[in-house]
């Protein structure tokens, strides 16, 4: 087949312009794959058609495009780039959210653990603190007590060591030798103080009573009462000896001598 004659016959133009019949089209489709010259000739004719159409172009009013886009508005895909970008950013955002969620949960767990630990620490510390406070209060109270006692003792020492203070030792009477009471008698003020060194505790309903023996007669010198150490009793103007008996609570006008516990003479 003379391919150049074929190309120059005008069959390609009839094909490109769309007026070739089915037989011609079939033949041309076969030959274009067989001969690159035919393919090239078709391409050249197509270029000519496009250029010719451009040369004969007739402008269209702007609203035609708008009408077309309106007609096809539901057939357009959402702009691909934007969609992809949106999806990417959405994906990024979701990843971020996931990351933060995971981080938040981890932080929450860590925080909760620390909270529990710190709460336990706090609880223990609080208990320790309360215990210490109680201990301290006890110590402070004890301290106050000791200070008071110390002051009392100092006062008594001053009292006992004061000038003009007469000391009367009152040992136990026969049968009650284990008892001992010491009496301090201020010769200036005539005040009497009694220190029960060793004396049994008075039974219920009973009290120890001090007697001053003045010229052989017992004179009431006061009740020892609940006083535990150095007790101040009634002032005694004159006495040669002192004695203590156990009497009914409130005291007796005269001593029951069978209940005599201790007795001592005043050394003058």
């Amino acid at each position: 087949m003379d391919i150049q004659a074929y190309i120059q016959s005008g069959v390609i133009e009839s094909y490109v312009l769309g007026v070739a019949d089915a037989q011609d089209v079939a033949e041309l489709q076969r030959l274009r794959f067989e001969y690159p010259e035919v393919e090239a000739a078709i391409a050249a004719c197509e270029a000519w058609l496009a250029a010719t159409a451009n040369a004969g172009a007739v402008p269209v009013s702007d609203n035609v495009k708008e009408q077309l886009q309106h007609t096809l508005q539901h057939e357009f895909a959402p702009a691909a780039g934007t969609t992809a970008a949106n999806q990417t950013s959405l994906l990024k955002r979701m990843n971020k959210v996931r990351y933060f969620a995971a981080a938040s949960i981890v932080l929450l767990v860590v925080s909760a653990t620390i909270n529990v630990y710190l709460y336990q620490k706090y609880h223990q510390a609080n208990k320790d603190y309360i215990a210490l406070m109680n201990e301290r209060n006890t110590v402070v109270a004890d301290n106050g007590l000791y200070q008071t006692r110390l002051r009392q003792m100092q006062d008594r020492m001053q009292l006992m060591a004061a000038p003009g203070m007469l000391k009367v030792s009152m040992p136990g009477t026969p049968g009650k030798e284990g008892n001992l009471v010491t009496l301090f008698w201020d010769t200036h003020t005539k005040d009497v103080y009694v220190l029960a060194n060793k004396l049994p505790k008075a039974p219920a309903g009973k009290q120890y009573q001090l007697w001053a023996l003045v010229d052989g007669k017992p004179v009431d010198a006061g009740m020892l009462g609940d006083c535990t150490d150095l007790c101040q009793l009634k002032p005694v103007l004159k006495a040669q000896a002192f004695a203590i008996t156990l009497e009914n609570t409130g005291g007796s006008p005269t001593p029951h001598l069978d209940q005599l516990y201790v007795m001592g003479n005043v050394k003058s």
Partner: peptide, 25 residues
């Protein structure tokens, strides 16, 4: 083929007057 409106717009802008000429003849 991806149904992009931008492509349609480009197609129209570049070919509408040439095709209009073909049609008017």
């Amino acid at each position: 083929k991806l149904r992009e409106q931008a492509a349609f717009s480009y197609l129209y802008d570049h070919y509408s007057s040439a095709l209009h000429g073909v049609i008017q003849q």
